[in-house]
Design a protein around this nucleic acid. Structure first.
Length: 637
RNA sequence: GCCGACAUAGCUCAGCGGUAGAGCAGUUGUUUCGUAAACAACAGGUCCUCGGUUCGAAUCCGAGUGUCGGCUCCA
């Protein structure tokens, strides 16, 4: 329920598939009484989708949302009699409907549509389900000039023919003047639709296909009561306050400029955060037997021809001509690491060989997809390529899953795992793909982690385990990835090692990133923490606040002690009043404000205020230095 | 890339054919203060860029760029 409409941005494909099912083939499940159960309202308040499902009320709210979509379509047809209807499913928190209209919609149109919807709801039309023979149904929608509905029906017919089953009857729902192809379920009558609001107009390709017509989609939200609608709108406002793009400006972390779309300019505080994350990972990697490398960002096209990127990834690469030769800014680190692998003959004793790299990557993403730090054209991954013997794959993946869990515990995120299988366009022998998929499945199963399967979601060179995290608002982000590559690096670059028996053997390459892109990871955790980063990550860990000028030397002295331990400290030596200094530090979400006045200077102590407003007075300097150093080292979220 | 919207001071925004505005931030001065805003003065703009309409354009129209909401894509 906390899930926002904008969540569709990160979940677009799933949303679309759900909508198709919804419209055409979802089984009918109804729980009409559940909405009144106490569990239901508790779950709404807690915002838990899972609990809602448990309470059995999901489908009832769903029915209300889907019904609201029908009422909206009725209103749109009233205003644009020739409108052609696409699909109109319920989604998380609301609904949408797609229309082909003679002109673009304006915000004024939304107001008019809302008014017409209110009239329909006030009229309390009953929803009536009807089933007619397929041919009659098809003729009906054809006669009404609804080609998209006819297409849906034809698809159903084709599917029935393919599976040898009988043509299904056409099911429609009718309320008042409006009739739609629909499986349901719906609420009993339009009057049962609660408080709603239309939220946005957007373009959407018919059936999600960029080659098909662009329809106009109207998003709306609907809730059982006005109060719940108001709460939802309030949560949307709150979500905007923790948007990393806004916090990036407020906290002086980074900025974006039109001279380099899709690439962040990192300010001192943001870069501090960035390096702190990077160095924490370096520490983990040193402990886990990695060796860091660095390879050139600008590479000749022949490398990409050899790796397969030229055929399958070129559209995402920035190309550069120099002296009649074509180079590319690297979109991935992987191929170049093979040059280091091949720089001498490798023994089986060296494996696993774990080469990590913080490589600067550029990918030419479509301009319309760019979005803050979470979708950029330039970024850095905490990448590594691990060359292993085939028998080491299982243990290596298990170790990697442990690394993911450790790193995510630093920021209090719970990773969830997805297994992405072979996509349509791939490199290499399908038998090798089957083998690699089998290895991943085995490792996942033996490590005991719960995982989902996403068909055809692998990379073009390897199946993969993707790691998603939810931020504090329940939105899901893809960050880490673990890929088992039998093809691109080992085969295409002809890698081998000398085995125990003196024979040449092919290694397996595991590609992995734990934060994924540092940029995206920082975007996610900024929203997760609403900018209030934990002590170990905060760009400024404490601000020292002298009450009057005469306390400034003592503040500088304490700052020196803290900085001597590598801690990140600012002294507010301005002539603002103490109250204002505290206000500014709160606004910057600094973990600790240390006030020094006459009492503190005399006793070499500080008055500590944390950003939650909690107060501790008379803490000795040495004790505080020790405490902050320990909290920093602990890397607690 | 596609559909739509938006672009005014460092930030948040008002102005919407007739001399460019506010709050915060900034600078300077006064103030030296005990847990979320001391007081005053000053300064700050190619109203995104280019072109058009008009006696006159921040304002209307067109193109470009960027951003935002979606769609498609997403290692």
């Amino acid at each position: 329920m906390f899930r926002l409409t904008i969540a569709a941005r990160w979940n677009g494909r799933a949303g679309y598939e759900m909508s198709k099912d919804e419209q055409v083939q979802a089984p009918q499940v109804g729980a009409p009484q559940a909405a009144e159960s106490e569990e239901f309202f508790d779950a709404v308040e807690r915002g838990s989708v899972e609990e809602l499902l448990d309470a059995g009320a999901h489908s009832d709210l769903d029915a209300m949302r889907h019904s609201a979509a029908h009422v909206m379509a009725e209103a749109v047809l009233g205003i644009f009699p020739g409108a052609q209807l696409g699909i109109g499913p319920s989604i998380d928190d609301g609904f949408y409907y797609d229309f082909l209209l003679p002109r673009p919609l304006t915000p004024d149109d939304l107001a008019a549509i809302e008014a017409a919807m209110r009239a329909s709801i006030a009229a309390d039309h009953r929803f009536v389900r009807k089933e007619v023979p397929f041919a009659d149904g098809r003729a009906f929608f054809e006669g009404r000039n609804q080609p998209f509905k006819v297409e849906i029906l034809d698809d159903l017919a084709a599917r029935a023919a393919a599976s040898g089953t009988a043509l299904p009857p056409t099911s429609t729902y009718e309320h008042g003047p409006f009739i739609d192809l629909c499986k349901g379920p719906h609420v009993a009558s339009t009057g049962k639709i609660g408080a709603f609001k239309l939220l946005a107009i957007a373009g959407a390709y018919w059936r999600g296909d960029a080659k098909r017509p662009m329809l106009q989609r109207i998003y709306g939200t609907v809730w059982p009561t006005q109060e719940e609608l108001d709460q939802y709108l309030w949560r949307r406002e709150q979500a905007k306050l923790r948007d990393h793009r806004r916090l990036g400006v407020q906290l002086d972390l980074f900025s974006f400029h039109d001279v380099s779309p899709g690439a962040a300019f990192w300010h001192p505080k943001g870069w501090t955060l960035y390096r702190t994350l990077e160095n924490a990972m370096r520490e983990l990697q040193a402990r886990r037997g990695y060796q860091e490398i660095y390879t050139p960002p600008l590479v000749h096209r022949k490398l990409w021809e050899q790796s397969g990127h030229w055929d399958l990834y070129r559209e995402h690469m920035f190309l550069i001509e120099a002296e009649d030769e074509t180079f590319s800014l690297k979109p991935m680190n992987c191929p170049e690491s093979t040059y280091i692998y091949r720089s001498r003959v490798r023994s089986y004793r060296e494996l696993p060989l774990r080469l990590s790299e913080y490589g600067k990557l550029h990918r030419n993403e479509l301009s319309g997809t760019l979005s803050g730090l979470t979708r950029v054209r330039h970024f850095v991954t905490d990448d590594a390529h691990i060359y292993v013997r085939p028998d080491q794959i299982g243990s290596e993946i298990e170790a990697l899953l442990g690394e993911v869990r450790e790193a995510y515990s630093w920021v209090g995120l719970t990773p969830s795992f997805t297994f992405g299988t072979r996509p349509d366009k791939v490199l290499g022998d399908l038998a090798l793909w089957d083998k690699a998929e089998g290895m991943i499945r085995e490792a996942l199963d033996s490590s005991g982690v719960a995982y989902r399967i996403k068909e055809k979601d692998g990379a073009f060179y390897a199946p993969k385990i993707d790691i998603q995290v939810e931020d504090a608002l329940g939105r899901e982000w893809q960050t880490a990835t673990i890929q088992v590559d039998l093809v691109m690096l080992p085969e295409r670059f002809d890698l081998y090692y000398i085995d125990e028996d003196g024979t040449q053997q092919r290694p397996v390459a595991i590609h992995r990133a734990i934060y994924g892109s540092l940029e995206r990871f920082i975007g996610v955790i900024t929203e997760h923490f609403a900018g209030a980063f934990p002590v170990w990550l905060a760009p400024v860990q404490a601000v020292l606040i002298p009450i009057a000028d005469r306390h400034l030397p003592a503040a500088e002295e304490l700052a020196g002690l803290l900085r001597g331990r590598g801690l990140r400290i600012e002294v507010d030596g301005s002539d603002n009043r103490m109250q204002n200094k505290i206000r500014l530090a709160q606004g910057q979400k600094v973990p600790y404000m240390l006030v020094l006045g006459d009492r503190e200077v005399e006793g070499r102590s500080v008055a500590i205020r944390n950003r939650a407003g909690e107060q501790e007075n008379g803490i000795g300097w040495d004790a505080f230095v020790e405490r902050l150093a320990q909290e920093t080292a602990a890397r607690k979220p």
